[in-house]
């Protein structure tokens, strides 16, 4: 059973995943620690990917592939024909910079899909990244949350502009569907509904 939820005209449904996500090979750089504990999250703009990792990333020779941002930037020339064919998407981590994506690929809408990867579900940078992709950079195609994606964040992800959600493998996407409609009438304007409640409704006193 697929673990992907897709929004189509604001209706959520379980969908088959047409995309393969290319992964960076494991790094041999040690994780940063403080007092023996792994640090909570990587800092925005932190360089954590090595040239070797980029070079060693396996991109399947055919089919639809979402490649890591660093690999996309470094190996874009080799992917040009597949980009034209709509076979290439890009994923980035929450600590990576949208500016890097946009300077390498000014026309984001040439990409059929952009994914943002959550290393940990509690990393709220993802909401600002998607908001900016939609409102600042005008990205109109599929925007997908991947990684540590859990149902209790789905409502916020949807409101922040995501249109598909690949639930963490050990969780049920079918059960998670319900959380997309936790709230009927949110107060503030956001990506999915830019108008705040006070301009959408007549709220007589």
């Amino acid at each position: 059973m697929s673990n992907l939820i897709q929004l189509n005209n604001n209706t959520a449904q379980i969908a088959e995943n047409a995309w393969v996500t290319a992964q960076l090979p494991a790094s041999n750089v040690e994780e940063r620690k403080q007092a023996g504990k792994v640090v909570l999250f990587k800092l925005t703009g932190e360089e954590t990917i090595t040239d070797t990792q980029i070079a060693d990333t396996v991109i399947p020779a055919s089919g639809k592939v979402i490649v890591p941002l660093s690999v996309f930037i470094a190996r874009k020339e080799l992917l040009l024909s597949r980009i034209t064919n709509g076979e290439i998407g890009v994923w980035l981590d929450t600590h990576e910079l949208l500016a890097d994506l946009v300077s390498c690929q000014p026309d984001l809408n040439a990409l059929p899909i952009i994914a943002v990867h959550l290393e940990r579900f509690a990393d709220g940078r993802i909401f600002s990244l998607s908001t900016l992709l939609r409102t600042r950079y005008g990205f109109k195609n599929e925007l997908r949350a991947i990684g540590d994606v859990l149902r209790d964040q789905l409502f916020f992800l949807k409101r922040s502009g995501f249109s598909s959600f690949l639930l963490r493998a050990d969780r049920s996407a079918t059960e998670a569907l319900a959380s997309l409609s936790d709230f009927t009438v949110p107060y503030q304007g956001a990506v999915d509904e830019p108008r705040p409640v006070f301009t959408r409704y007549n709220r007589p006193i």
Binding site: A122, F127, Q153, S160, P186, Q188
Partner: peptide, 14 residues
């Protein structure tokens, strides 16, 4: 208060 209640972009701040 209303604006900040379940503001999706700021649901999980640092």
């Amino acid at each position: 208060r209303q604006w900040s209640t379940f503001h999706p972009e700021f649901a999980l701040l640092p």
